[in-house]
């Protein structure tokens, strides 16, 4: 039982990432009808926002520290980040320590900017072209984006630590009445799951309870009629694209401490996220979230030792296997709507 619970928890953080990316993909598909293969690149750019903010905050200048000397007896030169000068040493150190959560604030405007630029600059011209063309051009864009990141940040993963308060693990099992030391769970993964839940909740609330969200939902259902009512639906869809980019970017920012950002992390996640979207049902937001968590947790269960003894290698293929079975038995995915991408 405790082993099952542990695997369930382990599946949550990956599932959260799948759910967030799939949610963004579905938003874009549902509003603009575009299959965005560059969505993984947005996730990756988000992760690199965290790296960039960390680098900006640790920008330093050299100060000669008279109180300490190096082994030759000369005064030691110390790198002092500029934030120390501005906020004082204690606050400065805390700011650097908390660079990943702070990067959320930094990433939101950046990602919305990138998203809007992408939609206005490129994807807008592909609404009337076949889906295959959309896939191809965004696939090309993904290559370009990841190569640009590779050029500036190098090909190696860049470790980006979580704040010191959240490093390490805690005994989750003991807290809910299991034997101590059976369910050890890292703090940051719990943070990630809560963060994902908040973001997903916020997106749904935004769509459900604001006028803007209502118009967008109306546009998703019948774009032409909303346009005829005198609403500039295109502009709202552009903003939704920016939001979807921000969701993917935030998923990436918070994922940076779990997997050190590297330039191809987006593509690795994208392939799986597409499977998630298709399993959830193209164009269904709840379906994307549900399938994201479901597949993340299934993957985690499949990597249990007891399972692998019966079916070796299942953890490697479970997601694809589930996708194949779902697509063949329920062509629209778990919660797909009728008439979406059925041609």
């Amino acid at each position: 039982m405790d082993a099952l619970l542990l695997q369930f928890l382990n599946g949550l953080d990956k599932g959260s990432a799948y759910a967030l990316i799939a949610l963004g993909l579905t938003l874009i598909f549902g509003t603009l009808g575009v299959v965005n293969f560059a969505h993984g690149a947005l996730f990756m750019i988000g992760a690199f926002c965290a790296v960039t903010l960390n680098r900006i905050l640790t920008l330093s200048h050299e100060v000669i520290d008279e109180t300490r000397t190096d082994f030759l007896g000369n005064p030691l030169k110390v790198d002092v980040p500029y934030v120390y000068d501005i906020f004082g040493e204690a606050t400065g150190a805390a700011i650097i320590d908390w660079s990943v959560p702070l990067a959320i604030l930094f990433a939101i405007p950046v990602m919305i900017g990138v998203g809007v630029a992408m939609e206005r600059g490129l994807i807008r011209h592909f609404y009337k072209r076949p889906h295959a063309d959309q896939i191809l051009v965004t696939f090309g864009l993904a290559i370009v984006l990841q190569e640009i990141i590779k050029y500036y940040y190098g090909a190696n993963p860049i470790p980006t630590p979580a704040p010191a308060a959240f490093t390490g693990s805690f005994d989750f099992g003991a807290m809910i009445g299991f034997e101590p030391n059976t369910i050890i769970y890292p703090y940051w993964r719990l943070v990630y799951f809560c963060f994902a839940a908040v973001i997903i909740g916020a997106v749904f609330a935004f769509l459900q309870f604001t006028t803007f969200g209502m118009v967008v939902r109306a546009g998703m259902a019948d774009r032409e009629t909303v346009g005829l009512l005198g609403i500039d639906i295109d502009r709202r869809f552009t903003i939704m694209f920016g939001m979807a980019a921000a969701v993917a970017g935030l998923a990436g920012v918070m994922y940076a401490p779990i997997t050190s950002p590297n330039y191809h992390m987006g593509m690795d996640f994208l392939v799986l996220s597409f499977v998630v979207v298709v399993v959830g049902g193209m164009g269904s937001l709840p379906g994307a979230v549900l399938a994201g968590f479901l597949l993340g947790i299934l993957e985690s269960f499949a990597s249990m030792r007891e399972v692998l003894e019966i079916v070796p290698g299942l953890n490697q293929i479970i997601i694809y296997l589930v996708a194949i079975v779902i697509l063949l038995t329920r062509p629209r995915g778990l919660m797909g709507r009728k008439g979406v991408m059925e041609e």
């Binding site: 299959v35 889906h131 896939i135 392939v271 597409f274 499977v275 298709v278 193209m282 694809y320 996708a323 194949i324 697509l327 062509p331 991408m341 059925e342 041609e343």
Partner: peptide, 11 residues
Amino acid sequence: GIYFSILTLAF
């Protein structure tokens, strides 16, 4: 369509 692409990718 896209479902075919995803299926082949999955295989």
